[in-house]
Nucleic acid binder design. Structure first.
Length: 462
RNA sequence: UCCGACUUAGCUCAGCGGUAGAGCAAUCGGCUGUUAACCGAUUGGUCGUUGGUUCGAAUCCGACAGUCGGAGCCA
């Protein structure tokens, strides 16, 4: 019994073969008088294999009815193509039809808008662009694991359901098994969460960081890589309600170790994708972002700029550029500021560190100046914030004070404080938005097109 | 959530007060070792929903919904 060969392997063959079996979906068919050209794709690569279906096939009448999107198995000889645009083609000896795609098949043999394709998210991976995007997504995941595993980082699975109702990173989705139409009530009229599944209010996590820190303070260097949920009503090209995040955490590390790791990681990932997804990147460079390859090569070749928040403000003030929000010490960096720094001033990724403590999270380490914290953001052209990280506050009293100042319930953080109570160590980490990294390496402009079935406000189809 | 634009055939759009059009797709036929093939014909729409103005609304006004872009929040 002949086994299926993937089209990528057929196309990469050194020489013709007497008999191969390929299976896939028809991309397009062109009929001649006595035979048909069929372009077949099985998702193993961007390219199609051309099938020559002669009218001597016993089911040629059925083969002639094949439409774009139909699925078939083809057995035949791999021969050198008589046509100009491909090395090999398959002269079919037998074609088995699995399923015809009826005339209402929505994918067409022409450019379709991303907005339209989002409405058929279940079929869009069959297009060239999305097939390429999701092959890259897989490779990028693999490369992330490679990067950390090769450096001895331990992969930790942090929980998705949490009782910490304020991790300081935005609105959260509630998780409950209570009957929302008729919830149990306390005498004072409030909902009795004691009767809920976990016996208290539960939510989907917005970050695995706090849990990750606990494992870093035991195993040394760790990373997480998993889904994250934000219930923010964000309607932008770079926010999703459900997205994937990578969060490394290093014990015995400071903010400079943190920046080094972030930069090494981004450059490693870009290089890996350039080397291993060359055809797919070529497609993105051709149809999506003509500057993509220069952008990526620039990241590989040049180190990231590094400045402090204070220097960033000064650079913008001296630039003479008119900003909608005037740069002055104390404000949070706006999108226009981030893009100015990365796109216009440095023309490459830039890491900004040491932000005023007022605009950053409670767990970030207070610097000796008493005004700033050891936070760092990696800003990249076009996307803005790719990575946000910090050295963590390891001093028990200071951390406790910051939790109280932030208005959070300290009772929920006793376990977190324990890591500072028992053998505390300096440590640091960051969060990388996986889909934002996808946007960087593919040039895809909208985060909704980098994740298979995107979840955004008012949108949870499929 | 705020600001703005948009919503007409399967897709991309035109029409902007007098009763709906193009290109592509699809279907049928022809032709050709073709390359998002080509040529011809055909099919296809209660113009987002809902109220109003008007003799008459796809077209003007309001509300609502959705989509997109920008902002905020952040990854």
């Amino acid at each position: 019994m002949l086994k299926r060969t993937k089209i990528i392997d057929v196309l990469n063959a050194d020489q013709p073969m007497a008999e191969v079996l390929v299976k896939g979906w028809v991309k397009t068919k062109r009929d001649a008088k006595d035979f048909s050209f069929i372009e077949l794709n099985d998702g193993s690569c961007l390219k199609n294999i051309q099938i020559i279906a002669n009218n001597t096939l016993k089911n040629y009448n059925d083969v002639k009815k094949l439409t774009t999107g139909s699925s078939i198995a083809v057995t035949g000889a791999l021969i050198e193509s008589a046509g100009g645009k491909q090395k090999f083609e398959i002269k079919a000896g037998n074609i088995e039809i699995y399923g015809i795609a009826p005339e209402d098949y929505p994918l067409q043999k022409k450019g379709m808008s991303d907005e339209f394709l989002r409405t058929i998210a279940h079929l869009r991976p069959r297009t060239n662009k999305y097939g390429a995007a999701f092959r890259v997504r897989s490779r990028l995941s693999y490369a992330i694991h490679n990067f950390f595993q090769s450096r001895g980082f331990v992969y930790v699975h942090t929980p998705l359901i949490t009782a910490s109702d304020c991790e300081g990173a935005g609105e959260m989705f509630q998780v409950t098994t209570l009957d929302l139409k008729n919830p149990p009530k306390l005498p004072n009229g409030e909902i009795d969460y004691g009767k809920d599944f976990f016996g208290k209010e539960a939510r989907l996590t917005v970050s695995g960081q706090l849990n990750g820190e606990m494992y870093a303070c035991a195993l040394g260097n760790i990373y997480t890589f998993g889904p994250t949920f934000r219930a923010e009503n964000s309607n932008t090209q770079r926010h999703a309600a459900e997205f994937w995040m990578i969060e490394p955490e290093m014990a015995f590390a400071d903010i400079y170790d943190d920046m080094d790791l972030a930069e090494d990681m981004v450059r490693y990932l870009v290089k890996d994708i350039m080397e291993n997804c060359a055809d797919d990147i070529e497609l993105f460079a051709k149809f999506i972002d003509p500057t993509l390859k220069d952008t990526l090569q620039n990241i590989i070749d040049n180190g990231f700029a590094r400045i402090t928040y204070t220097e960033a403000i000064e650079i913008m003030q001296k630039s003479g550029k008119k900003f909608e929000y005037t740069p002055e010490y104390g404000i949070d960096l706006q999108t226009e500021h981030e893009r100015f720094l990365a796109e216009e001033h440095f023309k490459r990724p830039v890491i900004v560190r040491d932000y005023p403590k007022e605009i950053k999270a409670f767990y970030m380490r207070l610097n000796d100046d008493g005004k700033t914290v050891a936070a760092m953001d990696v800003l990249v052209p076009r996307i803005g914030e790719l990575i946000g990280g910090s050295q963590r506050e390891e001093r028990y009293e200071l951390l406790q004070k910051r939790i109280v100042e932030s208005g959070m319930d300290i009772a929920n953080y006793d376990w977190y404080l324990d890591s500072r109570k028992y053998g505390t160590v300096p440590h640091a980490g960051f969060g990388l938005g996986f889909e934002r990294m996808m946007m960087l390496v593919t040039g895809i402009a909208n985060i909704r097109d980098t994740i298979p079935f995107p979840r955004t406000p008012k949108s949870i189809g499929f």
